[in-house]
Design a protein around this nucleic acid. Structure first.
Lengths: 225, 225
DNA sequence: TGTGTATTGGACCGTACGGTCCTAATTTTA
DNA sequence: TAAAATTAGGACCGTACGGTCCAATACACA
């Protein structure tokens, strides 16, 4: 709504993703959003906690715009979309030069044990994410082996990506994420019925190739704007 | 060394793994270790930061005792050891009932961007961990495909486990970790030459189309103990 | 014109934090 | 027994935190 509100939310999102929630003070946010003082801030948010919740929601919506939209894209083969989604996560991480991980993963690690309110909300975010992947896998079920467990696989994908982002941040090396992303694609391909997919396990480094005559070589940048 | 020192370290380790480093105050540690006052604490540690570093090292050594020792065990087949190692991570997590993740992953997420001193030390921990896995993979190379990239695979394993622990913590559901661990074993099995392993991936008929003459029809459970 | 809402600015409060200093009693060890 | 290290206890300091309260000004819209 209010222009100021989004301004505060934006500043807070940046700060929180850089230093975490606990280490981001209200005064920092005020400075970041160029407010006049505390009363100005508390005019829009009743507490720091509430600010955190809204940032989390907003962060998710942003991510949804960029990442989850790919998963829903109806014109592209579902499994190809999954690869593009993974590429998008890599691209997103590239923007911060390997620093600053998934905003959810960060908050999860910081607050999951300490703050039930955040834990529940983060859980919901992961769940929405996972369910999006599950429905994609359901859509792709003719291409997949019968016994593919969509719940498990979707969790695996998220866990691998979150873990990859974390390690990338620690090592300050983007190639870590790229390598894991490629391996993850191979793992997904392992579940594909047509063994054409199995092939990419060797020689094909660009694991984008999938069966069913799907378009290849789409550039990441064309998707992850 | 001193009995008190280890007592402080233990108390701090527990608190930090529960609430994170930033949210653990020196007073909390003093209370936890039943010290008389601050001067008593500062008699042993020159700062909270130094305490944190020592806790990190100690945490690693503990983990090494339990987890990494398995990776080195000379009497067991290397790939089997890898599976046992994964089981050990799951078991470790079970003890805290799904709460409290990998102490390294937690600290990594909390401090990687904010505190260079910790970042470097955590990176070193991951590196020691990864190198242990790499040397295991080197030992197992006769069983693996020629093109297996040990660096990449070791990173993938760590990332998947860290991500899994994180998600388990968020969902407060240990079965998440168990599922991911099982999938991770399948992923590793994918790199095995004689496909004792490969097969988890079921009734693929067209044997000829796959490279390296992979055999089929072995049960997953025979591999994934 | 008037009424509400947004904005500014600052004083203030209680609490917690990391850290220092000082004194004195107790235990260890040479 | 004397010196050295450990334990104890508390006062204190500067800073930062989340949050409240208040008074005054700007600006919208009806």
């Amino acid at each position: 709504m209010s222009d100021r509100r989004t301004q505060i939310l934006d500043a807070a999102a940046t700060l929180i993703s850089e230093r975490g929630f606990t280490s981001t003070s209200v005064d920092d946010v005020i400075k970041g959003a160029k407010l006049s003082g505390k009363s100005h801030f508390y005019h829009y948010f009743k507490s720091k906690e509430e600010l955190g919740y809204e940032v989390l929601n907003r962060q998710f919506e942003r991510f949804a715009e960029r990442g989850l939209a790919i998963l829903r894209e109806p014109m592209i083969d579902p499994l190809e979309r999954l690869n593009l989604f993974i590429d998008a996560v890599v691209a997103l991480q590239s923007e911060s030069g390997g620093r600053r991980g998934s905003p959810f993963g960060n908050l999860a690690a910081e607050l999951a044990d300490a703050h039930e309110g955040f834990r529940v909300r983060i859980e919901a975010v992961f769940e929405r994410w996972a369910s999006q992947i599950r429905s994609l896998l359901w859509e792709a079920r003719p291409q997949l082996h019968d016994d593919v467990d969509a719940v498990r696989l979707s969790r695996f994908i998220i866990a691998a990506l979150e873990g990859a982002v974390l390690m990338t941040r620690v090592k300050r090396d983007l190639s870590v994420l790229e390598g894991i992303a490629a391996d993850l694609k191979r793992f997904i391909a392992m579940h594909v019925r047509d063994s054409a997919a199995m092939q990419l396990h060797r020689n094909v480094e660009d694991a984008g190739s999938l069966p069913h005559g799907i378009a290849r070589h789409l550039s990441v940048s064309s998707v992850a704007v």
